[in-house]
Amino acid sequence: MAEAALPKRLDAIRFVDNETVLNGSLDMNLFKRFQEAVEDVNGPVVYKLAFQRDADDHMFIDGECSTKATMVCQRCLDAVVLEVRGKFEIGLAFSDEKAKHLPKHYEPAIMDHNGNIDPWELVEDELILALPMFAYHADGECEARQPKADTEQVGVTEKEDNPFAVLQQLKSK
């Protein structure tokens, strides 16, 4: 297992052939798209990328990444700090056409003609995909208290008008 700085471009084929595992942490200030999607980032991005081949000789990256981010709670509109975790299997291919032949459980990633990829972009994409659609505080922690529903049964005292009563009168004439 290798503990190294994550390069901006890497030779994915060589990493797969060597069954390289990269893990470490990255400065969140370098992930501009993720920062635009949240209110604030509360720590570094921790990542692990394992380059492998499956039984059918498909190259893939088994990875995970996590960080903490501040978002706006949709109940109380206050800040809520959430753990953002992404776990993924990315199949590597040289073209869109070859990516269509990857097993369905792989998310495809296209390498350039030399077999290089941008692992930073992959990690950032996975973090963005791991964001919740709507952020909420845990039950009982939200400042905005939801009103309790009135559980008392209300009986119907008035006789409801039958909308077909007029038709009944016309029929009887």
Score class of each variant (00 low, 15 high):
His101Ala: 15
His101Leu: 14
Gly43Glu: 09
Gly43Ser: 08
Ala50Phe: 08
Glu107Val: 13
Ala99Ile: 08
Cys76Ile: 10
Leu82Asn: 03
Asp54Ser: 02
Gly91Ser: 06
Val80Lys: 00
Phe94Glu: 11
Phe88Lys: 03
Ala69His: 01
Met71Ile: 05
Cys76Thr: 07
Ile90Gly: 02
Tyr47His: 04
Lys100His: 03
Ala99Tyr: 06
Glu39Arg: 15
Gly91Ile: 05
Val81Cys: 09
Ser95Glu: 03
Pro44His: 09
Val41Ala: 15
Arg75Ser: 08
Lys87Asn: 11
Glu89Tyr: 14
Ile61Glu: 08
Cys76Gln: 04
Phe60Ala: 00
Val38Trp: 03
His58Leu: 13
Leu92Arg: 03
Gly63Arg: 00
Phe34Trp: 05
Val72Ser: 10
Phe60Gln: 01
Phe88Asp: 01
Val41Asn: 13
Gly86Ile: 07
Glu64Ile: 14
Thr67Lys: 06
Asp56Val: 11
Cys73Asn: 05
Leu92Gly: 00
Pro103Thr: 02
Met59Arg: 10
Glu107Tyr: 10
Thr70Tyr: 10
Gln52Ser: 14
Met59Ile: 08
Ala50Cys: 02
Ser95Tyr: 05
Val38Lys: 02
Ala69Thr: 07
Asp78Thr: 11
Gly91Gln: 02
Leu92Lys: 07
Asp96Val: 12
Val46Glu: 15
Asp40Tyr: 14
Ile90Leu: 13
Asn42Asp: 15
Val46Asn: 14
Leu82Gly: 06
Lys48Ile: 10
Cys76Asp: 07
Ala50His: 13
Lys98Asn: 15
Gln74Tyr: 11
Gln52Tyr: 12
Tyr47Trp: 01
Val41Tyr: 08
Phe51Gln: 01
Glu107Gln: 11
Ile61Lys: 00
Glu64Lys: 13
Gln35Phe: 05
His58Ser: 08
Cys65Arg: 01
Pro44Gln: 11
Lys87His: 11
Gln35Ser: 15
Val38Ala: 06
Pro44Trp: 04
Asp54Pro: 05
Leu77Glu: 07
Cys76Trp: 03
Lys68Asn: 11
Phe88Leu: 00
Gln74His: 14
Cys76Ala: 08
Tyr106Thr: 00
Asp62His: 11
Leu92Gln: 01
His58Ile: 08
Glu36Lys: 15
Ala55Ser: 12
Phe51Glu: 03
Val45Asp: 00
Leu82Pro: 09
Val45Arg: 02
Asp57Trp: 12
Ala99Val: 04
Ile61Gln: 06
Ile61Cys: 07
Gly91Asp: 02
Asn42Cys: 15
Leu92Thr: 04
Phe51Asp: 00
Ile90Tyr: 05
Glu39Val: 13
Val84Cys: 00
Ile61Arg: 06
Lys68Pro: 06
Val38Gly: 07
Arg85Ser: 13
Val72Met: 14
Pro44Ala: 10
Lys98Ala: 14
Val41Ile: 12
Glu107Thr: 15
Thr67Trp: 00
Gly86Asn: 00
Glu39Gly: 14
Val45Tyr: 01
Gly43Asp: 09
